[in-house]
């Protein structure tokens, strides 16, 4: 049985894997403020869950700071 030849559109495109860089490290952030709502909301889903590091590319140190800031902001109803 012969296989049908795939056309250009049917062929799988190779994913271009770019290395994720921590945006906080790039900006040289030393502390993430829990009152800075605009930044915190960027790292949350619509339901208010914290985006994982594998999606955002945040480094472990800044992810820890970010999670702590979001949890503080949740208590005072600044973020979901």
């Amino acid at each position: 049985m012969a296989f049908a030849k795939k056309t250009g559109n049917q062929r799988r495109r190779k994913k271009i894997i770019r290395p994720k860089i921590c945006t906080f490290c790039e900006a040289g952030v030393k502390y993430i403020d829990f009152k800075d709502v605009e930044i915190l909301r960027k790292y949350q889903t619509e339901q208010g869950k914290i985006h994982p590091r594998r999606i955002t590319g945040t480094c472990a140190n800044h992810q820890k700071m970010l999670a702590a800031a979001i949890k503080r902001a949740r208590v005072i109803a600044l973020v979901m």
Binding site: K35, G48, R74, I76, A77, L78, V79, M80
Partner: peptide
């Protein structure tokens, strides 16, 4: 005084409040 802000979620069935820091 951070001013009047809308809550992301309700507190005691209220939607806005005045924040002090």
């Amino acid at each position: 005084i951070m001013g009047r802000r809308q809550f992301a979620r309700e507190i005691n069935k209220k939607k806005t409040g005045i924040y002090l820091d």
